[in-house]
Amino acid sequence: MILEVAILFVKNGEEKDFEIASQFISSIQGYLGHSLRKCIEQENKYILLVDWEKLEDHTIGFRQSEHYLEWKKLLHHYYDPFPVVEHFLTILENKNNTQYFI
């Protein structure tokens, strides 16, 4: 599984409209789910986390689809500056709060 991470800075005053528009994401092959999180300290800062089966599902499957063109039309005008998008592999995951001692 690949995690796409984008830190988004939304133009001041447009946060609520952005939040409504960002609910749109397509179910391209390989899409597993996503979450949008808002920064507590900075009103116009968000982090978008999208899980994909493999990198190409995002970089080719989504980015070259009609769904992406709609996503781009709905959301890209909110960003200032345009976000950097990076992809990550899970090395360690602790979902049950188990403590590890080293």
Rank of each mutant, 00 (worst) to 15 (best):
V85Q: 09
L74A: 09
L92M: 08
E86M: 14
E4W: 09
L3A: 15
L75S: 04
L8H: 03
N96C: 08
I2C: 08
Q99H: 11
L3E: 14
N96S: 15
K72Y: 09
F9N: 10
N94H: 03
H76A: 15
Y31I: 14
Q29W: 07
E14Y: 06
F24D: 12
K45M: 01
K72Q: 11
L49E: 10
E4R: 09
K45G: 00
T90A: 13
E93N: 13
P81S: 11
F9G: 00
E15Y: 03
E43K: 07
I25Y: 05
L75K: 06
Y68V: 03
V50Q: 10
K95P: 00
K16P: 01
T90W: 02
N97T: 11
N44G: 05
K38F: 06
H58L: 05
G13H: 03
S65G: 13
D57A: 06
N44P: 05
N97K: 15
I91W: 03
P83A: 07
L89N: 13
K16E: 15
E41C: 06
P83D: 04
H58R: 11
Q64V: 07
V50K: 09
Y31D: 13
L32S: 15
D51M: 12
I60G: 10
R37H: 11
G61T: 11
V50H: 12
Y78R: 01
I2Y: 12
K38T: 08
F88D: 13
E70W: 07
V84I: 13
V50W: 02
V5R: 04
Y46C: 00
H67V: 08
Y78H: 05
Q64I: 01
S35T: 12
H77G: 10
D17N: 02
Q42A: 01
H34I: 04
H58F: 13
L75E: 06
L89F: 10
Y46H: 08
L36H: 02
L49V: 04
A6M: 11
Y68T: 04
W71A: 04
H76N: 14
Y68H: 10
V84S: 10
G61F: 04
S65Y: 14
V50L: 13
I7M: 05
I25D: 10
K73T: 15
S22F: 02
C39L: 02
R63A: 00
N97E: 15
S27V: 14
L36S: 04
L92I: 09
Q23A: 05
K72H: 15
V50D: 05
L36W: 02
Y79T: 03
K54T: 00
E53V: 08
K38E: 07
I47C: 02
